[in-house]
Amino acid sequence: MAATAQPNVKNVWLGGVEPMKASYGKLMMWFFLVSDTFTFSALLVSYGLVRYSYPAYAGKVVDFVSSPTYWPIPEKVFDALPFLHGLHAPLVFVGIMTFILIFSSVTMVLAVEAGHRNDRATVEKYMLWTLLGGATFLGCQAWEWTHFIHGTEGGTVVKELVDGSWVSKTIFGANLTENQYGPPAFADFFFFITGFHGTHVFSGVVLNFLVFYRTATGTYERRGHYEMVEKVGLYWHFVDLVWVFVFTFFYLV
């Protein structure tokens, strides 16, 4: 035998060693996540660039009115709650969404821990909780987008240059070219960043469902280990991690 003590021969790659004491799948998942970090960083850093190229709102927070000439204050944009029309609840909904995602990360890591003990029933239970958290987050995001697209009752009056003369018009909500809350770029970044993150959450929910299904049908029990839960878990925590950054740089700062 080789001098290196391998606790589990199955972990050895085809070259006969286990680089960085990680299995092939786990290491590749880590490298994928590093590349994904760059994609999300590029999106968030571009947001910073465009934000600083616009003037910030200079007045008092209470007197804030939306205008396409300066960058909006996020707490004045995201202040609505479902079923509570007209209530000013700044950042409450997005706070709830953050809590849901952190909690689903906790249930995911509990599933991974149960997998280490080959405790099939517990893995199933926590995978179900993680699925519930992911689906709830997606539902919340759908509502948030709908509200953002439809806009407020009053809308915002903007002046536009049409055929050489200034025309006043009222804009309701936001799309990729018009935005009642601020410069159109603000809405563009909202759609791209939360949309790209939401796509990741959706893929995560699909992967989590596959892991739940294969746990419930005993695939991993027959295989003898629950490493797949760990690999998909890495991805799910990464999605949570990205949201922590989106929450800070899009909603708080």
């Binding site: 590093v34 970090t37 760059f38 960083s41 590029a42 850093v45 571009s46 910073g48 660039l49 465009v50 934000r51 600083y52 190229s53 616009y54 003037p55």
Partner: peptide
């Protein structure tokens, strides 16, 4: 590798200020 992100952040924030 995350050092590259820090570099991009500093570079583009300066660029944003310059555009402003």
């Amino acid at each position: 590798p995350c050092i590259f992100v820090v570099w991009l952040l500093i570079a583009l924030m300066r660029e944003g200020g310059s555009i402003f």
